[in-house]
Simulated assay, not measured.
Amino acid sequence: MPVSVTRTTITTTTTSSSTIVGSPRALTQPLGLLRLLQLISTCIAFSMVASVAAWTGPMGNWAMFTWCFCFAVTFIILIVELAGLQARFPLSWRNFPITYACYAALFCLSSSIIYPTTFVQFLSHGRTRDYAIVATTFSCVACLAYATEVAWTRARPGEITGYMATVPGLLKVFETFVACIIFAFISEPALYQNKPALEWCVAVYAICFILAAVTILLNLGDCTNMLPIPFPTFLSGLALLSVLLYATAIVLWPLYQFDQRYHGQPRRASDSSCGYSHPHAVCFWDRRLAVAILTGINLLAYVSDLVYSTRLVFVKV
């Protein structure tokens, strides 16, 4: 079974949750206590919001979904570990917990930013606003707890570990998450329709997202040996292709969205959709700017992915 490791010679195995689970004592271990904190904080967050119906629109729905989803999956992980069912779990337990923790940290981070800026600040003072503030606070606590788990269980020199615990594996999670945010901002087809260059950018976002998601799924399912080419070659080729594709998008998207020569809008004031204020809406010009920034962020992530992928050594255990 192929796994990724660092350049250092391997002599010991990674200390993971699977070595301390299978009994109630697992909850007294640092990682078990950390997951209890995640469970409690996400539970309080969605309970506070649900008790006063303090969510409206896509942004509020996203925050509510995030807290409920993270609570449910964390609960499942705790049950699996307490019962010692890692071997029966359908996904690779070397890769699944840290992959989920990374996604959960990003989800809670986004909710901790989006929910107060698009919803809480527009609430009048009272019980609903107070409950929403409490939910935001515990969302931040959950984010820190999940981020701590990622830092705790990530791969270190001299350890055998799953690919998703390495820097390139975690970058894959980040890349897919940023792509999902980009998809949310370009959900209005009017932003790119009838402009081949912008449609190409949308295709770039979709292609790179699919390739990164396939890599994650292959590792979660321990199916990397099913590829027709060696997994290291696949990773390096994927990272290089993604860098080249995003390099075109980082040029074309701002050029055709903000340059007047290509019928772009260089100033926010020129966008009529930004002339009115709505707490749960994002105008077209802001969407264009957000996508341009996120494209640059993801390009940097793919460049880092390429650098780290070429430095990894793959062995068979």
Rank of each mutant, 00 (worst) to 15 (best):
Y302L: 08
K316W: 05
S41L: 10
S17L: 04
G32Q: 09
F258S: 06
T128R: 14
P189K: 02
V173F: 09
L34M: 06
L300E: 10
I76D: 00
G57C: 05
D222C: 12
I293R: 04
Q38R: 13
I20F: 03
P24D: 12
W152H: 07
R127I: 14
T6V: 09
I98C: 03
R156Q: 11
L37K: 02
L109C: 13
C108W: 03
L312C: 07
P168S: 03
W93F: 05
T19C: 13
G60M: 03
I79G: 09
D271H: 08
I182W: 06
R35G: 09
Y262E: 04
Y115Q: 06
L220K: 03
V73G: 08
S16R: 14
F234W: 01
Y100T: 05
L37F: 02
L78N: 01
T56K: 15
L289Q: 05
R129A: 13
K316H: 13
V150Q: 04
V120P: 05
D259S: 14
S187L: 06
T74V: 09
Q193L: 12
G169R: 15
A151F: 12
G162S: 02
M164W: 14
A53K: 13
V243W: 06
D222L: 12
V307M: 14
T99Q: 15
L218I: 00
L27R: 00
L106E: 13
Y131K: 14
P116C: 07
S111R: 00
L227C: 03
I181P: 13
V291H: 05
W62M: 12
L244T: 03
T15N: 15
T42F: 13
W253M: 05
L306M: 11
T136I: 09
R129Y: 10
V21Q: 15
F65D: 01
A105E: 08
W285P: 02
T13F: 14
F174E: 10
S51T: 08
L123A: 10
I207Q: 06
V141D: 10
T153D: 11
